[in-house]
Write a protein that binds this DNA or RNA. Sequence first.
DNA 1: CAATCGCGGACTTTATGTATCTATAATAGT
DNA 2: ACTATTATAGATACATAAAGTCCGCGATTG
Lengths: 132, 132
Amino acid sequence: MKYSKATNYALHTMMYLVASETNKPVGVQQLADKQDVSPTYLSKILTKLVKAGLIESASGAGGGYRLKGRREDVSFLEIIHAVEGTASLFDCCGNTHSQCAIHRVMLASEEAMEQKLRDTKMIELADALPRK
Amino acid sequence: MKYSKATNYALHTMMYLVASETNKPVGVQQLADKQDVSPTYLSKILTKLVKAGLIESASGAGGGYRLKGRREDVSFLEIIHAVEGTASLFDCCGNTHSQCAIHRVMLASEEAMEQKLRDTKMIELADALPRK
DNA sequence: CAATCGCGGACTTTATGTATCTATAATAGT
DNA sequence: ACTATTATAGATACATAAAGTCCGCGATTG
């Protein structure tokens, strides 16, 4: 069980956008350069963030990606859910309204992790960085 | 990102062993029947639990698997680690002693989940079941 | 119109999970 | 000692998903 690399790329990109002073669109080429990843692949990932409403895109010359919502509100969990999906990590005994005790424990532990990720905002880390 | 089915099988098998009254070895055939999984595949998974020291095996007629340590001590985390491995879920910027702030957050959230899984013992759920 | 840039689909490659089969080794009962 | 039983390990097959590329379309700017 591993997070995909896409999640890593998404988190770092969002960190960059949150930490960025201006709200001008940033091209995917520039974002990709910083992470040693191909622009076309990164754009696929960023499209997910667009659909999740975290960022918005502008086509055409001078276009790119920029934050959509408030800088202060972006949490780790939102980003991860946008990329990895929101399904539970644990599939059990054909679970719907599972009465399985094991399943309940697994869900609870997962929720503990999500709570931490929901509580941690990108901006908390961005503030520790030099603003650009 | 998903837990493997193997983890599910391992958890259910351990639950069965912890909830079981006697400490007689149980054959993999019997354990597999209860979970609708092939015996040979399940045995592969159980071998991991053996190597992790959670259960012990007895070859030959009348053999099988039984708990090794104390029934009260078996935690969810031990089982999961035995099957999934203990590596971190999140790989970042070539992390060793990572100074990456994102990485630290991801580790902390993971730790929150593991803490829950470490604190929850199999026997807590087994006690709620009818002993066999 | 032309250059730029994101979007979407199709595709390839690689890795991992899931599972089966078979041979081997260990043990118990006769 | 022989046989039935049972776990272990290796090879193999298959399915699925991650990771990444390629290309054409549409939108925007100048």
